[in-house]
Amino acid sequence: MIVAVWAPLLLPLLAVPAARLLAGWLPPRTAAWMLAGTAVLLAGAATASLGLLATAGLLRLPAVAALGHLSLPWLDRISPSAGPLAAAAALALGSVAALLLRSATRHRRELSSARDLAHSASGTPDGLAVLPDDRADAYALPGRPGRIVVTAGMLRALGTEERCALLAHERAHLGARHHLFLAAAEYAAAAHPALRLLRAPLSYHLERWADEAAAAAVGSRAVTARAVARAALAAAAPRPAPGHRPGLAPAAHTGPVPRRVAALLSPGPAQPSGRRTVVALLLTACLCTSAGTALDATSDLHQTVESAQSAGAAPAHSR
């Protein structure tokens, strides 16, 4: 097996930090597409690599070799370590499959209980479901048609214009089918542990995207910012007074909600366009290499099979 097969397994370690860095410098919509695309492509290449490593080992099984008329001695000579590697790759593939299955089951369970809930709530059939719950919560429930689910507590916490911004925000989620982005990132994370780090920035940029759409719909960034801030404070679980809070909160510890509010209130910080180009090029190179090496390794395995077949056939002719 050639070295190319390892690239898709190692490159996420470089590509994921690059994508996270780049996302911060891009407008929300572009950032969301970039993050989701990166996750899917890297996940595909990593899974293909594991598959190739496992297949290479599968060829060593006497039954498989006999079925494909492959020369086992030739295969052992060309890559002696393929057996243990393949076992490890097969284990990894198994855990990827298990993680995928777990995510899918959880998605289905959460969605179906959320749908039952929205169904039992009062609301307009084609848009809004209001839950008679005093705690503040709101989310977009994907489906045909999608619905906005919001609690009475949330509606009471907001003013007239802010309610309008909240509804516009959730409509933007449904209209742009943001749940597909979230699902893509969630499933991609099963393929490689590094890809888990793309989920939080993706969900942040999807919220920013919907915030911007809401600000455009209600015609005010300030109203949208206030809606987000008020909603978050209303939704925050009551906590005991913090005793050990640091005097000044470092920016890195600032959670997604204050960052969204700040982005609405003071839009357009200076873009470091030079660095942005460098990181974008680096990320593009990582993605191209990932896809390219996966394809390269596939054709290499194909060639190996053909060579092993002719090596298996050759002694019969010579005798």
Binding site: A114, H179, A249, V257
Partner: peptide, 30 residues
């Protein structure tokens, strides 16, 4: 993971920051 929620959980610092931002509608660079 599945549902795009309007707001996520806040830390104690987030909460303080938001109260400051709400009190000052001009929005200082906090």
């Amino acid at each position: 993971t599945v549902l795009a929620r309007f707001v996520s959980d806040l830390s104690a610092d987030d909460e303080r920051l938001l109260r400051e931002l709400l009190a000052d509608p001009a929005g200082e660079e906090t």
